[in-house]
Design a protein around this nucleic acid. Structure first.
Lengths: 177, 177
DNA sequence: CAATCCGATTGCATTTTGCAATCAGTTGCA
DNA sequence: TGCAACTGATTGCAAAATGCAATCGGATTG
């Protein structure tokens, strides 16, 4: 995962950022799953990332300017990862990727609820969601009127159940062994 | 490059299709550069793909349903590769990827002309371009009125000069050695 | 008939990945 | 106080993917 430049083409450079099997998965879990800690990303990843790869990618994404890291005041050893504006603006790409996958790939219905919501909401919904992310990760003022259901809430509801089930499975396997 | 499924999440499945360093580069050169032959992809790739990797990826993209291969009537040994509808609908993703890269990455101005055009044209332009691709690769009837400049022509003009320069460089290095 | 072009394939060194075990420091609870 | 559980990682090692150069047999061109 070296950061060399093969060419100055925008698509190529984008690929050099997340043209690997894990970077975008991590960003997906942070953006849509609300993960902020190492252990959350490790244990609640549907795809089961290895801890060394996760550590490496977090470091790399920080070097590239997509993430920042800060101490969690509640725990001296905890680190809290935040999305930068650079990462937040990946939302439209994620939405397109999800929409394409939903059409052409053997997606699980449960897991494509998020992609469906993003697709139906279109760019206005993406913008609202990005604002919410800016509020959570960059401390920007919230533009959502109080009482309004956030995009985040809508996105997570169904998904969390699946992820939780998966995490439970993994815990069982671990205790059996 | 095995085709296993880590999860049924649309974003994950999409990543398993082109979450590597080369698949999307090849598709980019076919979609925007009009490459149809092995040698074209090999010698006119800005990034310099190796022939074994190219062969492997073409095979893989065919297995995944993104490309088809046919004999070129003009030459018994030539194979002509075509985009499927599945690949053509990647245009919006490519456009988003290019737009994002243009904002956040150190793109070369020359090489970002394409991304800029796609961005300015927006979804209507993407649609027109996709129709042109369907015409060229799937034999669909052309919807573009005769005499109208195609998106393809606009996209290629500036880019080809850069690629040609690069190919010339490579030829020089080869003859020197 | 020789040089060149065609889509690949082979062999080999290097890099990346996946997996399990482990680390030292921190915290919660009895 | 003591100890288990949890924190973000790191290490060692085998397997897989990649990059590179050389090469293949057949087809075409001059």
């Amino acid at each position: 995962m070296n950061i060399d430049r093969r060419s100055g083409c925008p698509i190529n450079l984008s690929l050099e950022v997340f043209g690997d099997r894990w970077s975008l998965i991590i960003l997906r879990d942070m953006i849509f799953g609300g993960r902020r800690h190492f252990r959350e990303l490790l244990n609640f990843s549907l795809e089961g990332i290895a801890s060394n790869i996760l550590a490496d990618r977090l470091k790399r994404l920080m070097a590239l300017g997509l993430l920042t890291k800060a101490d969690d005041p509640s725990h001296k050893q905890k680190a809290i990862y935040s999305l930068t504006e650079m990462a937040i603006t990946l939302v439209p790409i994620m939405a397109q990727l999800g929409a394409w996958g939903r059409v052409w790939l053997p997606v699980t219905e449960e897991l494509s609820i998020r992609a469906e919501l993003l697709e139906k909401g279109g760019p206005p919904l993406w913008e609202q969601f990005m604002d919410e992310l800016r509020h959570e990760h960059l401390g920007a003022p919230s533009r959502t009127p109080p009482g309004t259901p956030t995009v985040r809430q809508q996105l997570r509801a169904a998904y969390e159940a699946v992820v939780e089930r998966k995490a439970e499975e993994l815990r069982l396997i671990k205790t059996e062994a």
